[in-house]
C-alpha cells in the first residue's frame, strides 16, 4: 500500500440547478469562438460545456483596433462584442455543435430588456440543443451594451425576471465585478429566478500609449482578464457563494488546475476557462486532468466536497 490511497470512483458530474454537466470545467464566452475553431486543439466533448461567443439580435462589427493589449500577467481587451447575430448563429453555428453533441451554453447580450427577451424567445425554438443561456449583464466594452443592467441590483433583477418568463431554458447570469457590492447583485439575480450565476466578467481597465499620448485601445476602456485578476475573482466567488443558494460558476484568470481547485474551494460548483485558452488552446483539458488527479489523491469523491464550509 502506498502512502496515498487513490479513489477510483470519484464523481465529476455537477448539477447547476437544472443544468447537468459531466464535469465542472467549462469554456468561457469570448475565448472559444463558436466552439469549432478549437477542435484541432481540444475535444469539446471531454469538457463540461462550451459557452459560445456572446450573441446579439443583430450582427455586431465590434470595436475599432487596437482591440487587445498585454499587461503584466493579464490581457486587456475591447473586442466590442463582435458576433454574427442570432440568426446566423442558429443557421451556421449551432447545427454543428448539435451534431457533435457538445453541451452548449449560449451567451447573450442586449441593449434593452426587450432585446434580451426576444433573444431568449428565439433561442427557445432550439431548446433541445441548448443546455443553458448565459445572460451577459456585465460586458464593459460597448457603451450602449449590458453595463447599465449589471451595475445595479435593480437592473439585474429587471432583465432576469423578464427572461425567465419567456424561456424554459435554464438561465445563468454572468456578473460584472465592476460594482460596489457583488453580493447584492448576486441576490438580485437569485430573487429574479436565475438558475445559476457566473462570475467574474472582466475588470474595467485601460492602458495609455505614452509615445502617441493617447489611450492604447481603440475603445479607450477595455476589460482586464488573465492571472492578474484571479485573486479578485476568487474573493468575489467566495462572497457570492455565501450570499446566495443558487450555484456559482467561478471565472477569472484560471490558468492551472490549482487555480481551479481554489475556485471550487471558494464555493464554485463549476469553473470557466477563458484567457488561458487563448494562451494555450488545450488548457481546459489539462486543467480537468489535474483537477481529477487532485480529487483522487486527496479523496474528494465529488466536486462540491471541495467547498470550504
Amino acid at each position: 500500500m502506498g502512502e496515498i490511497r487513490e479513489l477510483s470512483d470519484i464523481n465529476l458530474e455537477v448539477s447547476l440547478g437544472p443544468i447537468r454537466l459531466k464535469n465542472p470545467v467549462m469554456l468561457a464566452s469570448g475565448t472559444c469562438g463558436y466552439g469549432r475553431e478549437l477542435t484541432p486543439h481540444l475535444d469539446l466533448n471531454s469538457i463540461g460545456a462550451v459557452v459560445v461567443k456572446g450573441i446579439s439580435l443583430e450582427p455586431r462589427p465590434g470595436n475599432p483596433p487596437p482591440r487587445i493589449f498585454e499587461t503584466p500577467c493579464g490581457l486587456l481587451n475591447a473586442i466590442g462584442l463582435e458576433n454574427v447575430g442570432v440568426k446566423a448563429f442558429l443557421t451556421e453555428k449551432l447545427p454543428w455543435l448539435k451534431d457533435q453533441g457538445i453541451s452548449t451554453v449560449v451567451n447573450i447580450l442586449g441593449n434593452s430588456v426587450e432585446e434580451y427577451k426576444r433573444l431568449c424567445s428565439i433561442l427557445s425554438e432550439e431548446s433541445q440543443s441548448i443546455l443553458a443561456i448565459e445572460i451577459n449583464v456585465s460586458c464593459p466594452n460597448v457603451k450602449a451594451g449590458g453595463v447599465a443592467f449589471g451595475r445595479t441590483p435593480e437592473g439585474t433583477y429587471e432583465v432576469v425576471r423578464h427572461v425567465v418568463e419567456v424561456t424554459e431554458i435554464p438561465i445563468i447570469v454572468k456578473l460584472s465585478p465592476n460594482v460596489t457590492d457583488i453580493t447584492s447583485i448576486a441576490q438580485a439575480a437569485q430573487d429574479a429566478g436565475a438558475h445559476a450565476i457566473s462570475l467574474i466578467n472582466t475588470i474595467l481597465a485601460m492602458a495609455i500609449d505614452i509615445e502617441k499620448k493617447r489611450p492604447l485601445l481603440g475603445n479607450t476602456f477595455g476589460g482586464l482578464s488573465g492571472p492578474a485578476i484571479k485573486p479578485i475573482a476568487l474573493r468575489m466567488v467566495w462572497e457570492a457563494h455565501r450570499a446566495v443558494d443558487i450555484p456559482v460558476i467561478g471565472i477569472g484568470g484560471i490558468s492551472t488546475w490549482k487555480d481551479a481547485v481554489e475556485f471550487l474551494m471558494a464555493g464554485a460548483s463549476a469553473i470557466q476557462i477563458g484567457t488561458a485558452t487563448l494562451v494555450e488552446p488545450g488548457s481546459a483539458k489539462k486543467i480537468l486532468d489535474g483537477l481529477t488527479r487532485f480529487m483522487r489523491q486527496k479523496g474528494y469523491r465529488e466536486v462540491e466536497a471541495l467547498w470550504i464550509d
Partner: peptide, 16 residues
Amino acid sequence: SYMACGIGLCLGCAHK
C-alpha cells in the same frame, strides 16, 4: 497586428 490567440478565438486582431 497584436494577437492573443492566433487561431480566431478572441477576434482581437481586427483590421478594417
